[in-house]
Structure formats: C-alpha cells, structure tokens
C-alpha cells in the first residue's frame, strides 16, 4: 500500500515559564492512502501537537528537537514557509474542534469559503462563488444560495462544522486532519457529521487522521488506531486489534473504564488511579507505570520499546517481553469483549 504520510521519531518540547515541557517524546506512525487513522488519548497526551507539527502550525514557543515528517516523499520540516504554503490547505486540510472559533464572526459564510478558493487556487471571483455553492451543497447545507450571505452566528453548531468541512475541502486536499471535530456537538449531530466525513472520504479517496478521545467514534471511523499516552504512542494496530485484542494496560483501562450500555448499574468501574504525569518532568521508565496495576520493577527504570504482536499490531509494554510473567487482560474486560463479539455476530447475521 502507498504511504502518504510518515512521521519518524518526532520529539517536540515547549518552552514554558517553568521550563521545557516535553510534549512529544519519540512518535512514529504512518498513514496509507485512503485509510483512516485514529489517534486516541486524553488531553495533554500530545495528539493535537503531533498533527499541528504535520501542518506546521505549532505555536512560537514549540521546538522540534528531532524527527522526520515525510509527505508523499517530501520532507515537510525542511521546507521553507513559502513552499509549505502550497501544501497546507492545498494538500493537507484541517478541521478543528470548535467550529465557532474556527470561523470569522464578522465575515459572511460565502466569503469565508470563496476566500480560500481565490487565494489558494487563484480562481476568478465568479467561478469561486459557484464552486463555494457547490461545496455547501456537497456538505449538506439546505438553502445554500440564501445561507451563502449569512454570518456564522446564524448557523447551528452542526451547520457551522459543515461549513468548516466545506472550507477544508475547497482546495481538494489529499489528506484531511480532523482534530476532535465532533466533541463540541450533540450525539445526533455528531452521527450526521461522521457520516458526512465518511461519505466525502469515499468519494474523493481521502486519507484521514482522526483525533478523538471517544472510543465509540473510533470504532465507527477508524481502520487503524494509535493510542497515545504522555507524548508517546503506546499501542498501534488495526481497529480490531485494539478493541478485541488489546495488549497495553493503558488500552485495557481505557476500554474498561467507561460504562457501556451493557454495564449494570452498581457495577464498579475499572479506574485508572492518579492523574497523567507532569510533562515538565517526564518520569523515568514507562510514563504509565505509576498508574498501572501491572507495573513491574523494570517499568520504573527503563522505557519499554515497541514490541511486535503481529504484522499490524505493536505495543510498548514490558509485559510483552519474552521473560515477563504472563499477564492476561482483566477478566471483566475479557468478558466484555466476548459479549461484544457475540453481539456483533448476532447483528451481522
């Protein structure tokens, strides 16, 4: 399969008042053409920073210490800002979490879409307007002709997110980065937006990076999943690998910690004790060790490398070392996964 994007051993720190915050500590992943990669993790795990590095919109106090970002064979980090302007927007589109702050409140919707076309594609104004209307219809906005002349505040949250998607699609990008695009939306609107992104992806054969913390959304969208914790990828695999055969204790607790529709009231939830580490002082060894029920002595001492589980599935935990004691995933998670598999089988007939 053709690799459209490859990130290798990325290290990023932020110069803050208190010192250097090590936000990304050696992240490597790749994206194949036409697939959806979901990056999952809690806030502060570095998932947004990674994609901001790919689009080079990091704030001024961020420093890329090391690493390589290759897009279609081009080294993105070595480019000048002028060269990169042809990539950002034209090749790589972006959708942000909050559609209200991503739009200019005092500019009409139509102008916000045509602006991209006129600036990026050097399109004449008339043509750009026709194209913008087309885009608005493609993302499912009713009465596009009338709404073309309205302001963002006249749109609902879901409609605003559709506009943001239309702007991102305006210059036909190959890669679409969606940074929590539905977190600020209601579930019913969320399902509409997810459907829309999937439909557009199919029509245009887009490659998508989807950032979220909602595992239900991951299950809906992703082909492959990267689980991030404290600036590192701790587990990587196909969506089936991650949901039905997870190997990292952090993934276990993520999957087991939220109630699902089958959880009985009164059942104790599996919790991850404590809080994520302060990245000013990243802990020695495995960053998840202090919150890990299964941590071994070595976890506090040395960082685990990525162990290979299968051709598609990798996890960074010492538990996969051949000398480590055999530890199975918690019984109730195993039970939950068995139930889910049965349910899926029943549903799919």
């Amino acid at each position: 399969m053709e690799r459209i994007l490859e990130v290798k051993d990325l290290h990023i720190h932020f110069n803050a008042f208190a010192g250097a915050v090590k936000a990304i500590r050696g992240v490597s992943f790749h994206l194949n053409k036409g697939e959806t990669l979901a990056i999952v993790g809690e806030s502060g795990s570095g998932k947004s920073v990674t994609t901001k590095a790919v689009t080079r919109i990091l704030p001024d106090n961020a420093v890329i210490d090391n690493g390589e970002i290759t897009y279609k064979g081009m080294d993105l980090l070595a480019m000048t800002e002028k060269e990169f302007n042809n990539i950002r927007g034209n090749e790589i589109g972006l959708i942000f979490q909050d559609p209200l702050s991503a739009l200019d409140p005092v500019m009409k919707i139509g102008k916000q879409i045509t602006e991209t076309l006129i600036l990026k594609q050097k399109m004449p104004k008339k043509e750009a307007e026709a194209r913008a209307l087309e885009l608005m219809k493609a993302v499912g906005i009713p009465n596009a002709e009338q709404r073309f002349h309205e302001y963002p505040f006249q749109f609902s949250g879901g409609m605003r997110q559709r506009i943001v998607i239309a702007i991102a699609l305006a210059s036909n990008p190959q890669l679409l980065i969606c940074d929590e695009p539905t977190t600020a939306l209601d579930v019913t609107i969320q399902s509409q937006i997810l459907e829309l992104i999937k439909k557009i992806q199919k029509e245009r054969n887009l490659s998508v990076i989807f950032i979220t913390h909602d595992l239900g959304v991951v299950a809906n969208m992703a082909d492959r999943v990267d689980v991030m914790y404290a600036g590192k990828i701790v587990e990587e695999g196909t969506v089936e690998d991650i949901f039905y055969d997870p190997k990292h204790p952090y993934t276990w607790s993520l999957l087991a910690s939220m109630p699902n529709l089958d959880t009985k009231g009164g059942d104790e939830l599996m919790v991850i004790p404590g809080t994520p580490p302060n990245m000013l002082y990243p802990p020695k060894g495995d960053a998840f060790a202090p919150r890990n029920h299964y941590a071994m002595k070595i976890d506090f001492d040395r960082e685990p490398p990525m162990f290979k589980v299968s051709d598609t599935h990798y996890a960074a935990t010492w538990l996969l070392h051949p000398d480590a004691p055999k530890v199975e995933m918690p019984a109730h998670l195993k039970h939950r996964i068995e139930l889910q598999l049965k349910e899926a089988e029943k549903y799919n007939g």
Partner: peptide, 9 residues
C-alpha cells in the same frame, strides 16, 4: 446515534 465502542457492530 450513540457510538458504541465495538467496531464490527
């Protein structure tokens, strides 16, 4: 509309 964390389903 609630997404269920069970990919096959």
């Amino acid at each position: 509309a609630i997404p269920i964390p069970n990919p096959l389903l």
